[in-house]
Nucleic acid binder design. Structure first.
Lengths: 146, 146
DNA sequence: ACTCAAAGTTAGATAAATCTAACTGTAAAA
DNA sequence: TTTTACAGTTAGATTTATCTAACTTTGAGT
């Protein structure tokens, strides 16, 4: 709701909350810190910001949850991450490095570039599927504006 | 010589000095600022840092020059920029956006990913040349220069 | 119920990168 | 030669993101 724009760093925190909740059901401050390679007070400060923006919820001294809006935004970021990681792997990059570089790229690329990368990754799948199987569904998805 | 690591921002300034000198022969503080979309005092501060690191030289109240080391580092960054811009254009991204996104990507990608992108861009040139022209036997790479 | 270690928070320091405002130097026009 | 506009610089404020140190809360083990 509060559409103040997220910094790269806040995008990382939000995404990590989402990933930990998907993986563990619970996003604890300590685990967020460990996963991002920062200390707990850095997480606490970031959570204050994300709370102000209405993206996360947290009862004092307990784990972090996403609001609906937070879930929506986090899912978008995670999708970018997955797209970029797949893209890099398709180029031959090792998984660990693909993951790390996707994490950097996901915050900086324009909508246009993301769209072209999607075109590169997805239709290739469709074509290679089509060669072996039946024609796949058309894909008219479009990215957000920057 | 002072191998203190460059921040992304300082890499941008260094690269811009190099580009302006290639384009105009002269890198003025005002033009660096305009090209990067910052104000002159930001350039002045950045130049203080780059001077400390032995990468640029500047007589007070005049244009900025690169030291030998600065030239070497700047050329490396510019090469990354050119590689990435070409890569994005090959994916179908418009030139202006390719330039902007290359500028962001050039500071964050790992060596491995840069290598794979190089593999993707360069051999494709060779193959597409080979398809249109005669098989070029051992003729090698006149198109791709590093 | 009490203790105490671990998780979480708060406060304050530091570093990087930017800005505005005010100052200084330079060189072209008068 | 003097003025003056513009390029460059310096000083200090602001924002973001991190840290360490010190505090508070929670809950598990006794």
């Amino acid at each position: 709701m509060d559409h103040t724009k997220l910094t790269q760093s806040l995008e990382d925190y939000l995404e990590m909350v989402h990933m930990l909740r998907l993986a563990n059901g619970l996003a604890r401050v300590k685990d967020i810190a460990a996963a991002l390679g920062v200390k707990m007070p850095s997480v606490a400060k970031a959570m204050v910001e994300l709370k102000k923006m209405g993206l996360v919820r947290q009862e004092p001294y307990s784990g972090v949850e996403l609001t609906e809006e937070g879930e929506r935004v986090a899912a978008m970021i995670l999708n970018r991450h997955i797209l970029l990681k797949g893209f890099l792997i398709k180029l031959g990059v090792s998984e660990a490095i693909a993951d790390k570089d996707a994490c950097s790229m996901e915050h900086i690329l324009s909508a246009e570039t993301l769209g072209k990368i999607e075109d590169f990754v997805k239709p290739t799948d469709a074509i290679s599927s089509a060669k072996k199987l039946k024609p796949a569904a058309k894909n008219g998805k479009k990215a957000g504006e920057k």
